[in-house]
């Protein structure tokens, strides 16, 4: 039972409650750094580190932190992890750090991360909080990657820097530029909502059929 519960917390972030496609959170990094797949992955990994680390601490100290100052405490914890991620990336992969630029420090302001602390980590045991953080960060990474891959393939004719098409391919420059982020995100959100609509319709049909069968 316990195992199922934590598994459930892990999976819900990736699909059912996907932070980007369903909750529509964290739009700023989503649109800003997804112009190539590799940037999307670096951003996703950095966010995952921050989210899992701060969820762990917030959940561990949830009985110690007074409710009145909880948001300030969450921000201090998140900001510390972001600074650690910032310096680590700068030391280990300076090229990637250069590409992401100001968006690493801006992870602090990602409402997805603060939102998970407030809505989940500060109310649940550490193990569940970490599972939830892993799931949400996984969902965020997945969303970043799908946007980044689509934009890089259409806008640059490449994926992870590897050319996919012949020289005749004319890149859709707009996909690399900021409007491309909005266009791609819009189409993906459209798909998710269509899917949800179809699923509800299907469930209603099944219920209908069962009722008439009886």
């Amino acid at each position: 039972m316990k195992k199922n519960e934590s598994y459930e917390e892990l999976v819900k972030g990736i699909w059912r409650d996907n932070p980007v496609f369903v909750q529509v959170l964290g739009m700023c990094p989503m649109l800003a750094v997804t112009n190539s797949a590799i940037n999307a992955i670096a951003m996703g990994m950095a966010s995952m580190f921050v989210l899992v680390g701060s969820s762990f601490l917030v959940s561990t100290f949830r009985h110690v932190i007074p409710k009145q100052v909880r948001i300030s405490c969450f921000i201090i914890i998140i900001a510390t992890f972001v600074t650690i991620a910032d310096y680590t990336l700068l030391a280990l992969v300076p090229k990637v750090h250069k590409e992401l630029g100001a968006f690493i420090p801006l992870i602090v302001a990602n409402c997805l991360i603060l939102g998970r602390q407030e809505a989940f980590a500060s109310r649940y045991p550490t193990k569940l909080a970490v599972m939830d953080a892993l799931g949400m960060a996984g969902g965020f990474l997945l969303a970043l990657l799908s946007l980044g891959a689509v934009r890089e393939i259409l806008g640059d004719g490449a994926l992870f820097g590897v050319r996919l098409f012949s020289e005749n391919f004319e890149p859709w420059i707009v996909m690399i530029l900021p409007p491309g982020g909005f266009l791609t995100l819009g189409v993906i959100l459209l798909f998710f909502n269509w899917f949800k609509y179809k699923k509800d319709e299907f469930l209603a049909d099944v219920a209908e059929a069962e009722r008439s069968g009886n």
């Binding site: 110690v64 100052v69 201090i76 510390t80 600074t83 650690i84 310096y87």
Partner: peptide, 20 residues
């Protein structure tokens, strides 16, 4: 609470800055 959180955070940041 805030002072301790700030202190611990400050030490962590100095640590990562010095080591990188």
């Amino acid at each position: 609470t805030l002072a301790i959180a700030g202190l611990v955070s400050g030490i962590a940041i100095i640590g990562i800055y010095e080591s990188t």
